[in-house]
Simulated assay, not measured.
Amino acid sequence: MTIAPDDAQQGASPLYRAMRDFVQSMDDTLPGKFEITKEGIVHDRMAPIGLHELTTLHLRKRLESVMPEELVAHTGTPDVEAESEGIMRHPDVMVIAWADMDVPGSFDPRTLIAAVEVVSRSNPDNDWVGKMRDYPLLGIPVYAIFDPRTATGAVLSDIHPTPSGPRYATRKDFMYGEDVTIAEWTISTADLPRYPNE
Rank of each mutant, 00 (worst) to 15 (best):
35 E>M: 11
35 E>P: 04
36 I>H: 01
36 I>R: 03
36 I>V: 06
36 I>A: 09
37 T>M: 03
37 T>N: 09
37 T>G: 11
37 T>P: 01
39 E>I: 03
40 G>N: 00
43 H>T: 03
44 D>Y: 12
45 R>I: 13
48 P>I: 01
49 I>G: 12
49 I>H: 12
49 I>D: 08
49 I>W: 12
51 L>V: 13
52 H>K: 14
52 H>A: 05
55 T>V: 08
55 T>A: 11
55 T>I: 07
57 L>S: 14
59 L>I: 10
62 R>T: 00
62 R>K: 11
63 L>P: 02
63 L>A: 03
63 L>D: 04
66 V>C: 12
68 P>Q: 05
69 E>Y: 12
73 A>R: 06
75 T>N: 10
76 G>S: 04
77 T>F: 15
79 D>T: 13
80 V>S: 07
81 E>L: 15
83 E>T: 10
85 E>F: 03
86 G>N: 06
91 P>G: 09
91 P>F: 00
91 P>Q: 06
91 P>M: 06
95 V>G: 00
98 W>F: 15
99 A>F: 10
101 M>R: 13
101 M>D: 11
105 G>T: 13
106 S>D: 06
108 D>C: 13
108 D>F: 13
109 P>H: 06
110 R>C: 15
110 R>S: 14
111 T>G: 11
112 L>G: 02
113 I>K: 12
115 A>S: 13
115 A>K: 01
119 V>H: 01
120 S>L: 10
120 S>Q: 11
122 S>D: 05
124 P>A: 03
124 P>N: 02
125 D>Q: 09
125 D>M: 13
127 D>H: 00
128 W>V: 01
130 G>H: 09
132 M>G: 09
133 R>E: 03
134 D>E: 03
134 D>R: 05
135 Y>W: 07
138 L>F: 00
139 G>T: 07
142 V>T: 03
142 V>F: 10
144 A>N: 00
145 I>V: 06
146 F>M: 08
147 D>S: 06
149 R>F: 04
149 R>L: 13
152 T>I: 07
152 T>E: 07
152 T>V: 08
153 G>S: 07
156 L>T: 00
156 L>V: 10
157 S>D: 01
157 S>H: 03
158 D>P: 08
